[in-house]
Design a protein around this nucleic acid. Sequence first.
DNA 1: TTTAAAAGGTAACAAATGTTACACATAGAA
DNA 2: TTCTATGTGTAACATTTGTTACCTTTTAAA
Lengths: 210, 210
Amino acid sequence: MKKELNDAYSFVFEEELLNEIFETGVLKFIPSGEVILDAEEYITSIPLLLNGAIKISRVDSDGDELLLYFLERGDTCAVTLTCCLNRSKSDIKAVTEKDTKLIMVPVGKMEEWIVKYKSWRTFVFQSYSLRLKEMLDAIDSVAFFRMDKRLLHYLRDKAKINQNETLQITHQEIAYDLHTSRVVISRLLKTLELDGKISLRRNSLVVLDL
Amino acid sequence: MKKELNDAYSFVFEEELLNEIFETGVLKFIPSGEVILDAEEYITSIPLLLNGAIKISRVDSDGDELLLYFLERGDTCAVTLTCCLNRSKSDIKAVTEKDTKLIMVPVGKMEEWIVKYKSWRTFVFQSYSLRLKEMLDAIDSVAFFRMDKRLLHYLRDKAKINQNETLQITHQEIAYDLHTSRVVISRLLKTLELDGKISLRRNSLVVLDL
DNA sequence: TTTAAAAGGTAACAAATGTTACACATAGAA
DNA sequence: TTCTATGTGTAACATTTGTTACCTTTTAAA
């Protein structure tokens, strides 16, 4: 853990803080595809990603979903920070996109460190900043683009995050992430295939040239 | 200015900080309808609202707009904070919704106070928190609701912000805020009128029962 | 008063997206 | 192998939203 913590955060946090994280944080391994946080749940500790990736989605009262963004190594979740500070419900869902290793830090420490470490403050502000930006991107996507463009963007993102041109995913899962229906996705994927941009398999697809 | 500053922020900031704000901040009066910040602009100071209201919209590269949220007394803009800290472009547009009085504080102070005053830290975190939440609401609106619901929600919001059932607004302006066309808005407003929920005038409409 | 610009009403149509239904393929369990 | 659940392809149709066009009304400038 010490090594991985250093790998991911030694350029971000000072020695002393790294030690505190090492002492108070709890290391967790989470396999891909696991729901680590559901809407309606309360959050009492915040995650620092060591490796892997986490998909963050908005969930409305009907259970409808919409992909917001991915977290990767060195990231933390600003919405979680907010929920921690306010002791409020999450309203978001977090699912591991890959096998993921992370450190959970209790809220108490989080607030203590804000006062104590400049690097932590910077980190927290940077996180808010980054998430706000991702949120704006998500808004752009839904508000200004049609489904075909959104799908393209989604496939690119997904391939990048997984560092793999072959995406292990079903049409239905894509439909959930983009908040549309399976039929719509099948239709659009088919035209992408006819354009030679992807190749369709059962339970997976290969990104050729987006 | 001292009195208004106290009215809006004395429960938020400690005496000493209020004094610093009073000394370094620049008071501004901005009449309703003024563009105080456009996309592509850089920001070098952050606003603290004393009264009035400001409409914050997302602007894409084609100049298309989408209303994100309103700022009111005691609010500041988290996106602005972010832009200040990163010295990056705004990508958002701010227009006064009412006659507005605010204090502009230079970025430098902003960073200084984060270290110096606990209340300022709390305020800044609360702001991020609140804006993230509003951003999520904006996403919900575009992603999960159809235009008729979004319009209803918009009219309610607008009436609340302006503390007035009569909204001085044209169909075209509504269309800009919701990122759709004037014809669509006219159509939907007409059905709302037939349902007895609003009453239509030229250049204005009256919210009856939403 | 005449005229032009802005605002709004509405029809007709186009495009995008959502829905339902059903066929067929594939993988894994029984 | 047979059966069943899941995934995918596709047609047909409904609904929502966007676009174009043209009209009338209102306001304010010339």
